[in-house]
Design a protein around this nucleic acid. Sequence first.
DNA 1: TAATATTACGTATTACGTAAAGATT
DNA 2: AATCTTTACGTAATACGTAATATTA
Lengths: 146, 146
Amino acid sequence: MELRHLRYFVAVADAGNVSRAAQRLHITQPALTRQIQDLEREFASRLFDRIGRRIILTRDGEEILERTRRLLADAEALGERARALAGGEAGVLRIGAVPQFIEAVLPEVLTGYALTFPGIDVELVEDGGGLLLRRLQQGELHLAVG
Amino acid sequence: MELRHLRYFVAVADAGNVSRAAQRLHITQPALTRQIQDLEREFASRLFDRIGRRIILTRDGEEILERTRRLLADAEALGERARALAGGEAGVLRIGAVPQFIEAVLPEVLTGYALTFPGIDVELVEDGGGLLLRRLQQGELHLAVG
DNA sequence: TAATATTACGTATTACGTAAAGATT
DNA sequence: AATCTTTACGTAATACGTAATATTA
């Protein structure tokens, strides 16, 4: 089973017949018929009843269709999420700082930051042992905001 | 994006390197590398950091991985559900009957039925107008239980 | 007869395998 | 040197298109 099979299944169900679905998918009827058959073989289930030249969802097909819609929506969301993370539209900004800095400076900065980039989650890491401070002083680390 | 890409992605993440993942998938390393690259192109995102001959999940990759696991589990569940419906291991048994029959006979029958077939949901339809009864008497309908 | 679905079969896309190169421990 | 990843390229699997058949309104 691949997402293609599921996309085709939904297209046929939405179109009500194979021909129109094939047009929308920009493939031919036989190709689409074959993919639907493959899916039915894998599911060991008739998703559609063939009555004459009509093709109607079976009761099982109706349930599978709803679940399939949800899965495809989730798959779409997964891709969107990945692209958002990559594009910097979403993600986590991790900031390590000494407590004084966290209390004195970060609040106002992050307030504006959060307003500007609503998709970004901010995570603060307190620098209890002073390790970060030391490395900052030694130039091993740099703190950039914005 | 196809499920294959996602399955391969999880396999590489689980194995920790491409070679072992390829062995488990029964394909070769180059083929697997290519599919991972394709997925990264589609996501416009580096899922793994290549450090020398090492391949480690990026922070984005970790998040995508978890979402991908869930999606694949859902996809698996979809297939299982479809096969269960087809095999009669799950589904809905719709019974239409006159009120007297529902009250007098069905309770005990369905109690045993539900115990025997836990995956089946039972739905009762009352026969208010007596239409079902008439059609049963005329032999147009048959009621089978079990 | 017009419209739709299926079957049969050839073609084209693409996933895969093999060979070679690059990179790191 | 050994191990792993990547690139290049030929092969094989398969999704797709074309042609023909079947069925029905």
